[in-house]
Amino acid sequence: MTELMTLQNVSVHFPVRGALPFLKKGEIQAVSNVSLSIHRGEIFGIVGESGCGKTTLASTMVGMIKPTAGQVLFEGVDLNSLPRDEFKKTRRRMQMIFQDPFSSLNPRFNVYQIVSEPMFIRGEDDEETMKARVAELLEMVGLSAGDMYRYPSDFSGGQRQRIGIARAISLNPSFLVCDEPVSALDVSIHAQILNLLLELQEKLNLTYVFISHNLADVKKLCDRLAVMYLGKIMESGDSDKIFAQPLHPYTQALMAAVLDINFSEQKETEILPGDTPSPINPPPGCRFWQRCPKAMRGCKAIPPEYVEVEQDHFVACRLVNGFPDQDMPEGYDQPLVRLKTVRGR
């Protein structure tokens, strides 16, 4: 399998203007030193809680955000070093589907206008060609050509998401980022959209990045994945390996937090204490230490390295990778004593 997209030490920082009095001036480290590779033809998952930098990372992949540092390579070429024309051309091969099917479509455009817009922008001006293509796309996503002149408000959430998908695939992209495409949808529709994405992948030879906070979806859908926390990757690599043996305490906590509907299996689970800390001027050390049930004293000060612990399975955790041998303060590998953990049903 070849690599389609490679991120090398990518960071995205946003300045904080200090407009809000309770915030100290500084910067938001939305994405911090992320390296990963996405293989051609796979579904790559990005999981993590709100604000951990998933959307920012994905926007960087498709060239919507320029990284503060590091490189984004698409088919081996640094996206941000391309001349303008080339950049535009390459960008067309990457598309994004958004979470909210209600606000991501322009309510004043009809379906034909929405779906054909990318073609129009590219310079297509033959009405008949575009109509035929839109009809074809609508059929492909499970709508009908007859829906062409209706408006977004006439459609349900799931149908609007289908319109968004039709638009995203209109220019035959090879790389599609789906940013929480089903989070806003009902469960019964949820599965329909994910099945559609799978079907299109096969038909059109697509590579997906699938962003989600639902681990169960990611497990079912993705070949490889990255677990993010506060702008950093905690664990990444082969999905089967990670789910068979999650090594990072955060991945383990996320898995434990998936409420199961198998009633007989309702179990006492460890609930992760505390809140997600702010990404503004994050502390040194492991970004997860404040909530980590297994943190050691050294985790507070020394950030873990991101290490490949087995083939295609990366982990950033001192529990797994150990501390450096030298210059360690006394008791660095002793457990950190803190708030009691809450227990759940």
């Binding site: 799978l198 681990l215 859908l221 509907i261």
Partner: peptide
């Protein structure tokens, strides 16, 4: 029954989602 089948579970089979056809 359909709703329960549609809730994704960690124990599920890969690359296949059980759906309820149609819409509300």
């Amino acid at each position: 029954v359909g709703l329960m089948a549609a809730v994704p579970r960690l124990s599920d089979e890969k690359k296949k989602f059980t759906q309820i056809p149609g819409t509300v």
